[in-house]
Simulated assay, not measured.
Amino acid sequence: MAGLVTIETDRSVDNFIAQVGNASKEADSQVILKMMEEATGIAPKVWGNDKVPDFIIGFGKYSYTRKGSKEEFEWFKLGFAARKTKLTLYLPVDLTQEPLIDDLGKCKIGKGCLYINKLADVDQNVLKQLIEKSATKMK
Protein backbone atom coordinates (compact mmCIF):
# COMPACT_ATOMS: atom_id res chain seq x y z
CA MET A 1 0.00 0.00 0.00
CA ALA A 2 1.34 3.42 -0.87
CA GLY A 3 2.02 5.93 1.89
CA LEU A 4 0.13 9.14 2.41
CA VAL A 5 0.62 11.95 -0.10
CA THR A 6 0.09 14.60 2.58
CA ILE A 7 3.11 14.73 4.89
CA GLU A 8 4.64 17.27 7.24
CA THR A 9 7.01 19.67 5.43
CA ASP A 10 9.53 22.37 6.33
CA ARG A 11 7.68 25.03 4.32
CA SER A 12 7.09 28.41 5.92
CA VAL A 13 3.56 28.87 7.26
CA ASP A 14 3.69 32.63 6.65
CA ASN A 15 4.90 32.18 3.06
CA PHE A 16 2.18 29.61 2.44
CA ILE A 17 -0.54 31.97 3.67
CA ALA A 18 0.92 34.86 1.65
CA GLN A 19 0.64 32.74 -1.52
CA VAL A 20 -3.09 32.01 -1.21
CA GLY A 21 -3.77 34.71 -3.79
CA ASN A 22 -6.76 36.30 -2.09
CA ALA A 23 -6.20 39.13 0.39
CA SER A 24 -9.32 38.45 2.45
CA LYS A 25 -8.55 34.70 2.68
CA GLU A 26 -4.99 35.55 3.74
CA ALA A 27 -6.29 37.87 6.48
CA ASP A 28 -8.86 35.27 7.60
CA SER A 29 -6.12 32.63 7.64
CA GLN A 30 -4.01 34.74 9.98
CA VAL A 31 -6.96 34.98 12.40
CA ILE A 32 -7.60 31.22 12.29
CA LEU A 33 -3.87 30.56 12.65
CA LYS A 34 -3.78 32.67 15.82
CA MET A 35 -6.90 30.96 17.23
CA MET A 36 -5.42 27.51 16.65
CA GLU A 37 -1.99 28.46 18.02
CA GLU A 38 -3.56 29.86 21.19
CA ALA A 39 -5.87 26.86 21.64
CA THR A 40 -3.19 24.20 21.06
CA GLY A 41 0.02 25.85 22.24
CA ILE A 42 1.67 24.05 19.31
CA ALA A 43 3.68 25.61 16.48
CA PRO A 44 1.97 25.12 13.11
CA LYS A 45 3.48 23.08 10.28
CA VAL A 46 2.62 23.00 6.59
CA TRP A 47 1.48 19.56 5.42
CA GLY A 48 1.34 18.42 1.80
CA ASN A 49 3.81 17.72 -0.98
CA ASP A 50 4.95 19.34 -4.21
CA LYS A 51 3.15 16.80 -6.43
CA VAL A 52 -0.27 17.66 -5.00
CA PRO A 53 -0.31 21.40 -4.27
CA ASP A 54 -3.19 21.32 -1.76
CA PHE A 55 -1.32 22.23 1.39
CA ILE A 56 -2.76 22.27 4.91
CA ILE A 57 -1.56 24.03 8.05
CA GLY A 58 -1.57 21.42 10.81
CA PHE A 59 -1.03 21.45 14.56
CA GLY A 60 0.45 18.49 16.39
CA LYS A 61 0.58 15.01 14.92
CA TYR A 62 -0.31 11.47 15.77
CA SER A 63 0.30 8.02 14.33
CA TYR A 64 -2.42 5.64 13.27
CA THR A 65 -2.86 2.37 11.43
CA ARG A 66 -5.59 1.97 8.85
CA LYS A 67 -8.08 -0.83 9.32
CA GLY A 68 -6.72 -3.99 7.75
CA SER A 69 -3.19 -2.59 7.41
CA LYS A 70 -0.01 -2.82 9.42
CA GLU A 71 1.47 0.33 7.92
CA GLU A 72 1.62 3.29 10.29
CA PHE A 73 0.83 6.82 9.12
CA GLU A 74 1.26 10.28 10.62
CA TRP A 75 -1.40 12.98 10.43
CA PHE A 76 -1.97 16.36 12.03
CA LYS A 77 -4.36 16.56 14.97
CA LEU A 78 -6.04 19.85 14.03
CA GLY A 79 -5.62 22.09 11.02
CA PHE A 80 -6.95 24.25 8.24
CA ALA A 81 -6.52 24.84 4.55
CA ALA A 82 -6.69 28.25 2.94
CA ARG A 83 -7.93 28.30 -0.62
CA LYS A 84 -8.91 31.16 -2.92
CA THR A 85 -12.59 30.25 -2.65
CA LYS A 86 -13.01 28.86 0.87
CA LEU A 87 -11.43 27.96 4.17
CA THR A 88 -11.54 24.37 5.38
CA LEU A 89 -10.99 23.57 9.04
CA TYR A 90 -10.10 20.02 10.04
CA LEU A 91 -11.37 19.47 13.57
CA PRO A 92 -11.27 16.23 15.60
CA VAL A 93 -14.89 16.50 16.72
CA ASP A 94 -17.95 15.09 15.00
CA LEU A 95 -19.38 18.31 13.60
CA THR A 96 -22.56 16.56 12.51
CA GLN A 97 -23.33 16.05 16.22
CA GLU A 98 -21.94 19.36 17.48
CA PRO A 99 -24.59 21.74 18.92
CA LEU A 100 -22.33 24.81 18.50
CA ILE A 101 -22.78 24.51 14.72
CA ASP A 102 -26.32 25.86 15.06
CA ASP A 103 -24.92 29.16 16.36
CA LEU A 104 -21.92 29.40 14.03
CA GLY A 105 -23.48 31.00 10.97
CA LYS A 106 -23.12 30.32 7.26
CA CYS A 107 -21.05 27.17 6.78
CA LYS A 108 -21.07 23.62 5.48
CA ILE A 109 -19.92 20.64 7.47
CA GLY A 110 -18.68 17.12 7.10
CA LYS A 111 -18.00 14.83 10.03
CA GLY A 112 -14.64 16.45 10.80
CA CYS A 113 -14.50 19.28 8.26
CA LEU A 114 -15.90 22.77 8.51
CA TYR A 115 -16.18 24.78 5.28
CA ILE A 116 -16.60 28.55 5.39
CA ASN A 117 -16.34 31.15 2.65
CA LYS A 118 -15.10 33.96 4.89
CA LEU A 119 -14.85 34.70 8.59
CA ALA A 120 -17.43 37.47 8.25
CA ASP A 121 -20.01 34.71 7.57
CA VAL A 122 -19.56 33.11 11.01
CA ASP A 123 -19.59 34.07 14.66
CA GLN A 124 -15.89 34.14 15.53
CA ASN A 125 -16.57 33.53 19.23
CA VAL A 126 -18.40 30.30 18.36
CA LEU A 127 -15.61 29.34 15.96
CA LYS A 128 -13.06 29.90 18.71
CA GLN A 129 -15.10 27.65 21.03
CA LEU A 130 -15.13 24.89 18.38
CA ILE A 131 -11.37 25.21 17.94
CA GLU A 132 -10.79 25.14 21.71
CA LYS A 133 -13.06 22.10 22.08
CA SER A 134 -11.09 20.37 19.31
CA ALA A 135 -7.76 21.29 20.91
CA THR A 136 -8.94 19.81 24.23
CA LYS A 137 -10.03 16.62 22.48
CA MET A 138 -6.67 16.20 20.77
CA LYS A 139 -4.69 16.18 24.02
Rank of each mutant, 00 (worst) to 15 (best):
V46W: 04
K25I: 12
E26F: 03
G58F: 10
G41R: 14
P44W: 01
A39N: 08
K51P: 03
R66N: 14
V20E: 09
L33R: 00
D14S: 15
I42D: 06
F55G: 11
D54G: 12
I42Q: 09
P44L: 09
K45R: 12
K25E: 00
F55D: 05
M36R: 00
E37Y: 00
G60Y: 07
L33Q: 00
G21E: 02
G60P: 06
I17N: 06
K67Q: 11
I17Y: 00
F55E: 05
A27F: 01
Y64I: 01
R66W: 10
K34W: 00
K67D: 09
W47V: 08
D54S: 14
E38Q: 14
G60W: 06
K67F: 00
P44E: 11
T40I: 07
I32L: 02
N15E: 12
K51G: 11
A23M: 07
E37R: 01
K45A: 13
D54R: 13
N15K: 11
S63V: 04
N15S: 13
K67S: 14
K25M: 11
G48K: 03
I57F: 01
S24I: 15
P44F: 09
S29L: 08
G48F: 04
I57V: 09
W47Q: 08
G68I: 05
E26V: 15
T65A: 12
M35A: 08
I32F: 01
V46K: 01
D54I: 10
E38R: 12
R66V: 03
D54Q: 12
I56M: 11
K45E: 05
L33V: 04
P53K: 15
F59A: 04
Y64L: 00
Q19A: 15
A43M: 06
G58W: 08
D50K: 15
K51V: 03
A23F: 01
W47E: 11
G68H: 04
G41Q: 10
F16R: 01
K25S: 08
K34C: 15
E37S: 14
G21K: 03
I57T: 01
F16N: 06
G41K: 14
A39Q: 07
A43D: 11
G68E: 06
E38S: 15
Q19N: 14
L33M: 00
A39P: 08
P53W: 02
G58E: 05
K67L: 04
Y64C: 03
D14H: 10
R66M: 12
S63W: 00
T65I: 05
A23D: 05
M35E: 03
V20R: 07
D14Y: 10
D28G: 10
E37N: 10
R66T: 07
S24E: 08
S63A: 15
A18F: 05
Q30Y: 07
T65P: 05
M35L: 13
Q19M: 13
E26K: 10
S29H: 02
E37D: 12
V31H: 01
G21V: 07
Y62R: 05
I32D: 01
A27R: 06
A39D: 05
V31I: 15
M36G: 07
V52P: 03
